[in-house]
Design a protein around this nucleic acid. Sequence first.
DNA 1: TGACAAACCTCGGTCATCTATGTATAATGA
DNA 2: TCATTATACATAGATGACCGAGGTTTGTCA
Lengths: 112, 112
Amino acid sequence: MKIDKSLMSGSTTLLILSLLAGEEMYGYQMITELARRSNHVFDLKEGTLYPILHGLESEGLVSVREKKSQEGRTRKYYRITRKGGRALDARKEEWAVFRDQVDAVVNSAAPA
Amino acid sequence: MKIDKSLMSGSTTLLILSLLAGEEMYGYQMITELARRSNHVFDLKEGTLYPILHGLESEGLVSVREKKSQEGRTRKYYRITRKGGRALDARKEEWAVFRDQVDAVVNSAAPA
DNA sequence: TGACAAACCTCGGTCATCTATGTATAATGA
DNA sequence: TCATTATACATAGATGACCGAGGTTTGTCA
């Protein structure tokens, strides 16, 4: 199923930080991993991801280091910082509240 | 708790149609009802609601009729149409998929 | 009479995301 | 060998949802 992109709004950072909470990752990998873990519901675009990563870095929520792979390809690996961990906790909580309240409204209305 | 407005994006129409699935309502009432049912998590603004209602009407998802209250105040009551009901079902399904996949990603990452 | 709530409306701005495009290198395959 | 595709990064401009700020009218209450 294709999800309206506007629904994605605001949850992207939560998803990225969640990925990085598990392991160090590079940008391109985040896109493929996110698609895999969400059963291709989330098809994050490069034009969306990279600016967000730069923003997270300048906010100090993630740190970067360059690493060369065996094939000689250089990648930028992102790692979540302590501050990023706290931000993730806050966004998780925010998401939980939002999710439950949407469900509350959707289910509160009895069919006519 | 205050929810980042960007999270709201895309769910507003779902919430409005959900409200109207239960009963006929006028705009101002939707704002207060939504705030009440969501424990004030959703504080929909008039500048957001009215344009959306006009859009839903022009798409044929809701119908309108003017009704005068006892005090003589005229209100515009919105009612969901059959087409609107089908749109609501589709958006509910979309929301459920989105919600579950966000949860899947958030919970799939083990802490480092 | 003046202030405030109810009830409707619109315009312009902000911000998140996407589309499109660009660069460079490695792998694939015709 | 040469072209194409996948990997991996990046930015600029367009789009679209929501909000802030403002405006109007009617009813209530001090």
